[in-house]
Amino acid sequence: MTHVSTHVLNAVTGRPAAGVAVTLTDTTGTLIAQATTDENGRVTSLTDDSLTGVYRLMFDTASYFAAQAVVGFYPEVLISFEITDPAGRYHVPLLLSPYAYSTYRGS
């Protein structure tokens, strides 16, 4: 089974970004899973289904920044990634600030 997880860190405060809504879809927009980051900024498991192909994680950054009383430039962050091993673990972290973001394949 494929394991997909994420972690969001507020790069301005250096703290986990709790309360960020995260959606996992396939390339047609079909919903696979929805979750919200916990107090540690993590979603430990979005799916344990067997997946292969290209998928998208969408982070609702507008709502997160509004709750922090911060104006941001990116209302959402969309990360496309490819699952090549249906038995693999795919951790997709997001480093977030109001005017920039970055991501990488985590472990």
Results as ranks from 00 to 15, higher is better:
S45M: 06
P16W: 11
D85Y: 10
T13G: 08
T25M: 07
Q34P: 00
A67I: 01
G14H: 07
I79E: 01
S45T: 12
S80R: 07
S5K: 15
E82D: 11
T27S: 13
I79M: 04
T2M: 07
L78D: 08
L94C: 04
V8K: 01
I32F: 10
D26P: 05
G106V: 07
M58I: 09
V12D: 13
Q34F: 01
R105H: 12
R15P: 00
S50F: 08
D48R: 11
Y64W: 12
P16R: 06
A18Y: 05
T27A: 10
T27I: 12
T37E: 03
I83W: 08
T13L: 11
V92T: 06
E39W: 07
V71I: 15
P98Y: 08
L46G: 00
Y101C: 05
F81W: 08
E39C: 06
T103W: 10
G41P: 01
E82V: 06
Y55M: 05
G41E: 00
G88C: 11
R15F: 08
T13R: 13
T61V: 05
L95N: 12
M1N: 10
L9P: 02
D85W: 10
R42I: 02
T27R: 12
L78C: 07
A17H: 05
I83R: 08
T25E: 06
A100N: 15
G72N: 08
P93A: 08
F73M: 12
S97I: 01
G53V: 09
P16Q: 10
T23M: 10
P93R: 03
T27M: 14
V77Q: 06
T2P: 01
R15W: 09
A87L: 15
A69L: 07
Q68M: 15
T44P: 00
L96K: 04
G106E: 13
H3R: 09
L31F: 02
F81R: 04
A21V: 11
I79V: 15
A11E: 12
Q34D: 12
V20D: 02
T23C: 08
T28F: 09
R56F: 01
A33D: 09
A100G: 09
G29S: 15
D49P: 00
Y101D: 00
P16F: 11
Q68N: 08
T84G: 15
N10Q: 10
V71K: 14
A87G: 13
Y99C: 05
G19Q: 06
Q34I: 09
T30L: 14
L94M: 06
P93T: 09
M58E: 07
